[in-house]
């Protein structure tokens, strides 16, 4: 089931060495992709970032993470995982910016969302 309504569309990349995200309450998501058809007029077809249910700029990630973390139990704050759900055709420049932003906010546990690859 979806956590939020997607405003960006993304196709998961594929990988084999996947691990399941354990506690859902400790996971926050960053969606990266092109805006869906209804938002394309307003936001264009460039890659955008979605936090919760709104579009966001890369700069806003740090603040978002810090806010989300402070809403967690203190004992669990260190276990927060950020799942990056990005389209497989995203340029690495965008991902690298997100990673830098996450590092700055001390959200070091990350997971690149992907689907299991069955064959090459």
């Amino acid at each position: 089931m979806k956590e939020v309504t997607y405003k960006v569309q993304f196709r998961n990349p594929q990988a084999t060495e996947l691990t399941k995200l354990e506690k859902k309450s400790l996971v926050r998501y960053i969606y990266v992709g092109t805006p869906t058809a209804e938002f394309r007029k307003q936001y264009g077809a460039e890659t955008r970032i979605q936090l919760d249910d709104a579009f966001a700029e890369t700069k806003e990630i740090g603040e978002y993470i810090i806010n989300e973390r402070s809403s967690m139990k203190e004992s669990e704050q260190g276990l927060m995982t950020v799942s990056i759900k990005a389209d497989k055709d995203t340029k690495m420049g965008v991902i690298a910016d997100i990673k830098q932003e996450l590092r700055r906010a001390y959200a070091l546990k990350i997971s690149y969302a992907a689907t299991q690859r069955t064959s090459y």
Partner: peptide, 17 residues
């Protein structure tokens, strides 16, 4: 027909800033 979003991913750790 229900699509279950599987929460799988490649877990990595970023270096401290």
């Amino acid at each position: 027909t229900t699509s279950m979003d599987v929460n799988q991913g490649l877990a990595r750790r970023l270096p401290a800033p």
